[in-house]
């Protein structure tokens, strides 16, 4: 069983992902929710439903290991005065949370012996599904693109933006992705789940826990 993260109380915890056998697809489905990630094994498919959130699939091309996350950034305007996102601004909650969401997934691949220069990415999501003045989806897309550029991880393909939510099926051994558009009318649950996740992050300042080990 793999570890996934959840944004409950703004604290990243590990728990077991929901995993079930899909008779039609003839594989195990690992379903991830906003704030979670999974690194898969042969015979598994990682699945998530996205609204304005981003799912990044990270693949180690030499080892043939891949994983997917589903992350939400805090509700915070983080573009600087010149309109650019700033992934490396330490004052930005978004930068720090977004970095960690990506790092946790990458770490699982590194732990399995992955090398950074073998990593490739596919990115999905960032739809405009709510009628708010801030286009959260667009900011999420900008964040992940900038992050991957700084980390020198090539984006092999992407399906981002637009107005429709997506269901993503990711095959972590072959790096194949199937994207299914979902009707907006059926997006209610997705919006609720994403908003709850964002609220969790917003409610808590990014206070990493500090432990003094010699006491």
């Amino acid at each position: 069983m793999r570890n996934v993260i959840t944004g409950e109380d703004g604290v990243y915890k590990t728990k077991s992902a929901s995993r079930y056998w899909d008779a039609r697809l003839k594989c195990h489905i690992v379903k991830i929710l906003p704030g979670e990630y999974a690194v898969g094994e042969a015979g598994e498919m990682i699945v998530t439903i996205l609204g304005s959130c981003i799912a990044a699939c990270i693949y180690e091309k030499v080892l043939g290991i891949g994983g997917m996350n589903h992350f939400m950034l805090p509700f915070e305007k983080y573009k600087n005065r010149s309109g650019e996102n700033n992934v490396t601004d330490y004052k930005s909650l978004t930068a720090r949370y977004g970095n960690v969401a990506m790092e946790m997934l990458i770490n699982e691949i590194i732990k399995k012996g992955g090398m950074r220069y073998n990593l490739e990415a596919k990115i999905f999501g960032g739809a405009s599904i709510t009628d708010t003045s801030t286009d959260i989806g667009a900011e999420n897309i900008a964040f992940v693109r900038e992050y991957l550029a700084i980390e020198k991880i090539k984006i092999l393909s992407e399906d981002v933006g637009g107005f429709l939510p997506r269901k993503i099926y990711y095959n972590p051994t072959t790096n194949d992705v199937y994207v299914k558009r979902i009707e907006r009318a059926n997006a209610g649950d997705i919006i609720v789940a994403e908003n709850a996740c964002r609220k969790n992050i917003k409610d808590k300042e990014a206070d990493g826990k500090v432990y003094f080990l010699d006491t």
Binding site: Y12, T14, Y90, K91, L93, R96, Y97, N99, V100, E103, M104, N107, E205, A206, D207, G208, K209, V210, Y211, F212, L213, D214
Partner: peptide, 26 residues
């Protein structure tokens, strides 16, 4: 990003003094 007791114990054994969990507050 590691936050388990087990990993912190390993940190202590390795000789680290403080364990800060990401996302960290600068």
């Amino acid at each position: 990003t590691e936050s388990s007791d087990e990993m912190r114990q390993k940190g202590k054994e390795a000789g680290a003094k403080v364990w800060v969990v990401k996302p960290f507050n600068p």
